[in-house]
Nucleic acid binder design. Sequence first.
DNA 1: CTCGATATTTCATGTTGTCAAGCAACGCGG
DNA 2: CCGCGTTGCTTGACAACATGAAATATCGAG
Lengths: 146, 146
Amino acid sequence: MVPRTDALTREVVDLIAAVVARYHEEYEEAAAKHALTGAQAKVLALLAREPMPMRRIAQRLKCEPSNVTGIVDRLEARGLVERGPDPDDRRVKLAAATPAGLETADRLSESLDFAREPLAGLSAEERTSLRDLLRRVLEPGTDAPR
Amino acid sequence: MVPRTDALTREVVDLIAAVVARYHEEYEEAAAKHALTGAQAKVLALLAREPMPMRRIAQRLKCEPSNVTGIVDRLEARGLVERGPDPDDRRVKLAAATPAGLETADRLSESLDFAREPLAGLSAEERTSLRDLLRRVLEPGTDAPR
DNA sequence: CTCGATATTTCATGTTGTCAAGCAACGCGG
DNA sequence: CCGCGTTGCTTGACAACATGAAATATCGAG
């Protein structure tokens, strides 16, 4: 067992906390620029890649399916998303981004690109190191993608 | 200007997103173990270090002061936090953790220690590299200037 | 076909967040 | 000292997000 009071580890954890805070701030800000909330932006980004059942969205967001209903309702009300039937299972509803939704998702993605500028301060070598270290940190319990 | 489609940068950003997601998940989980929400845990952790005015809490949380009122209300209702007068300014209310609040904050902190185990997989040298790289990433705009 | 499981929705409820309005206290210029 | 703009906090109204329980429809195995 690693000593819990290790100063170095603590500092790294604090830095990660700072990164998390910063990431959130910028994400919400970028979403707000397109009149979306964070949750809506996340769902829209998901659906821009591929349509998926409500239940799958809930898994990705790690929340209850009943919650997703509301989020998709609001996106649908704004014409960014549509619900369609799943040909293989009539219980399932497939949510998909509309053309307008895709367009918004694209612009959102660009705003987020802007947010990643801080990384530009790192050389290619440094970015590679960072990538490798982050991979290692995430490795043990990487969430099994389903 | 760095090309926005740089594969390496994109991968690092994705990894950071994964770290952010993971961090949140574990934070909420740790908070829930003590029957706290994420926001409540954050405020309690802040106040466990030192008492502070409501307005300062709002700044730290980057939210409206009126929001803090509710969060502190709930913590106070559970006896984890107390509001007291500021001797220097009677408009100000100083929120402070009660003994019970300090105790909860301690146990919460231990749960979070547990969550940082992933870092244990890294050698001291690697943790140092990671620290330095994260510092660099955060450096330029530690505080979003507006 | 029946029955348990699954996908979604609806409803009730609670927390977080915003904004506008209000009140008390501060502190400055006259 | 007195007004008056500013500041700190709370309140109220309202939207979004989140959970859990119950309702509905469909699926699939026996």
